[in-house]
């Protein structure tokens, strides 16, 4: 990471700590903001957060690794999460998954080269009556067919 980038990030995190405070319970909101902006929380960012909250970097990493919506590895601008739980599976998740993989040319767990989309599985999103379902960022899409899923994916910027 360049020194300038580090300085910008440092400043940004300092502002976040000003907003949310420096107690341990401010950790998750701070991490969420960093995740939202950078699509991941870098090693440097984790250590900066740890320094400002007076905790150990490994504790920050522990929290990030626990929550599926926080990531310590770079992710795409958009994250597509297809439900893998049993009702969506019975409703035809497999063919939807294959169609998305073919369309994007990547497998689940990977990110497209242009950083547009990361593809992931998720556990139940509570749409069991309307499966197969997927999440794109915060938005839910239900009753997917392979064609419909590809159409939705192609609309993502």
């Amino acid at each position: 990471m360049l020194v300038m980038e580090k300085n910008f990030l440092q400043e940004e995190i300092e502002k976040l700590v000003e907003t949310f405070g420096n107690s341990r319970s401010a950790l998750i909101p701070i991490l969420q903001e960093i995740q939202k902006k950078h699509h991941y929380i870098s090693e440097f960012a984790q250590q900066e957060v740890a320094r400002l909250l007076d905790i150990h970097p490994v504790e920050v990493y522990s929290v990030i690794s626990f929550y599926a919506f926080l990531s310590s590895e770079p992710k795409g601008r958009n994250i597509v999460r297809l439900c893998q739980t049993i009702t969506c599976d019975l409703a035809g998740k497999y063919s939807v998954a294959k169609a998305i993989e073919r369309e994007l040319g990547i497998a689940f767990g990977e990110t497209t080269k242009d950083n547009r989309i990361s593809l992931e599985y998720t556990n139940c999103v509570g749409m069991c009556d309307q499966g197969p379902a997927m999440l794109i960022n915060d938005k839910v899409y239900t009753r997917l067919s392979p064609e419909k899923a590809v159409e939705i994916i192609n609309e993502i910027k």
């Binding site: 984790q46 490994v58 504790e59 522990s62």
Partner: peptide, 25 residues
């Protein structure tokens, strides 16, 4: 490591059956 020594090398990483005690990154 955290309470007795204040060094903080180890923590529980990941969750569920993937949980392990590991270091930073």
């Amino acid at each position: 490591c955290i309470d007795l020594q204040e060094v903080g090398v180890l923590e529980a990483i990941d969750r569920g059956d993937k949980t392990r005690i590991d270091t930073f990154m």
